[in-house]
Amino acid sequence: MKVDEIKKIAFLARLDVNDRELLSLTNDVNNILNFINKMNEVDTHGIAPLAHPLEINQRLRNDEVTETNQRELFLKNAPAQEAGLFLVPKVIEEV
């Protein structure tokens, strides 16, 4: 990966990377990717992927409301809040 591509990925992941970090990050990422490419040593054609170690079925829950309002508790951790809302810098109106 080149520096440009690293910047693109950093944007996708919403990570601010300063110029000082950029070179070492590019270097590390490339080393790791080279290492990961070792996977290509084996032919996996036709092998079913395993997404989860326990290949069991999903358990479902009943449609019940048990939660009570805990807004004030949750808002305690909020970096910025007002009138029961979490605040963020103005999101440009879409319409």
Partner: peptide
Amino acid sequence: VKRRIMIGTYTLS
């Protein structure tokens, strides 16, 4: 953590 997020983001892109 950032290195890992970068790699993970890349491999899923």
